[in-house]
Amino acid sequence: MNKSFYSIFKTFFKVGTLLLGGGYVILPLLTSELVEKKKWITSDELCEFYAIGASLPGIIAANTAIFTGRKLLGFRGAVAAILGMILPAFLAIVLLASILHELIDKPTVQHIFWGVGIGVITLLFLAVKEMWKKSVNDKLSYIVFIISLALALTQKVPLALIIIGALIFGIIWQKIEDKHNGGKVDE
């Protein structure tokens, strides 16, 4: 399928519609649509967009969508992606605004919400598995992963700080490695 403004918009509209549980599932949804079905980008690229998107200010799902859209079709792709992703959210809230309060007190809605939560955790698991394969595969990444996870779970360290720490750690690690190799370029 060719990457036109409309096809990108349509794809992200679908992803935006399925973006339940607060935006965390952007990675598994995009993996399914863009990597597996349409083969527009590789899993490697997507993981990178997600990781960088998560380390910038702003809403992660939006950052990831804009990054990906830009890769697909430049500025127009970025616009198509963000519009597609935001529109379902926008419509849902505008249409439901007046009954939102009653809605969440309904047992039926609570039950659906409970169920969807299980689907969301499943998708998160699949996303972590995929991302693990692509980004945690050497000594540097194991160390960063373990320390970052521990820090994130304490809920005491701002997430931005963890990411910035990982960034600096990566650079320092490289410098030390270079020194050990005596300035030789490895690989």
Binding site: A51, I52, W132, S135, V144, F145, I146, S148, A166, L167
Partner: peptide, 10 residues
């Protein structure tokens, strides 16, 4: 580094 941390945050 960022990718490994992103995976950890997820």
């Amino acid at each position: 580094g960022i990718k490994a941390a992103g995976c950890a945050l997820l």
